[in-house]
């Protein structure tokens, strides 16, 4: 009884509880696939086990290194720092900064989207907001992982292409949103 009570309150307060819950889901799905194959196609199990083992063996050090790196990055260069730098600049400079600086950010879109929303509310233009989201996909913190699986050439070229891609996505989306849908390039606080 004591444990159920304390675990309930812990679950509400503790962000770890949510993480652990989704971790358990992913592990269960994995085991389920594994078990299903073991049951219906036992000869295929060895291939799956081999793939899982070999791939983990190949990347375990890289992933630990990247994990440490992202942890450090998040306290020394917070997403808020980045948005503060970009938020100050409007016009062209803002779009260019928004297309480059987010390259160094980690996290998922679920973190980036609310951040960009805050940026927009602070007055960043549409193109800068959309460029910010696009540039984040450069994912420099994951570079070691990308090099391992896709090669140095692929990784470097992709990150370099992300910059003009982010500028173009930002400007093109802004143009469409403004000309066709009548959205304001700069947000006003009273809107909506």
């Amino acid at each position: 009884m004591k444990t159920t009570n304390s675990s309930r309150t812990a679950q509400q307060k503790n962000p770890w509880a949510r993480l652990i819950r989704s971790a358990v889901i992913y592990i269960n799905i994995s085991l389920l696939i594994w078990a299903a194959v073991a049951l219906f196609a036992p000869t295929h199990v060895a291939i799956i086990t081999d793939t899982v083992y070999n791939t983990f063996a190949k990347v375990i050090k890289i992933i630990i290194a990247v994990t440490i790196g992202i942890g450090l990055l998040h306290v020394w260069v917070t997403p808020e720092h980045v948005s503060r730098v970009i938020g100050k600049e409007s016009g062209w400079k803002g779009v260019v900064l928004a297309s480059t600086i987010p390259l160094i950010l980690g996290g998922s879109l679920f973190v980036i989207l609310p951040l960009v929303k805050a940026l927009r509310e602070k007055g960043a233009r549409l193109a800068a907001c959309i460029a910010f989201i696009s540039a984040w996909s450069g994912k420099a913190p994951l570079l070691p992982l990308e090099i391992e699986f896709l090669g140095l050439r692929f990784a470097v070229l992709r990150i370099l292409l992300t910059i003009p891609f982010a500028v173009a996505t930002g400007l093109m989306s802004e143009l469409i949103l403004e000309r066709i849908f009548g959205e304001k390039v700069h947000s006003t606080h009273h809107a909506g």
Binding site: S30, W34, H44, I47, T51
Partner: peptide, 12 residues
């Protein structure tokens, strides 16, 4: 955990 799932899927 996500990597585990992806690796199992890759094996599959």
């Amino acid at each position: 955990p996500v990597l585990l799932m992806i690796f199992v899927l890759m094996g599959f």
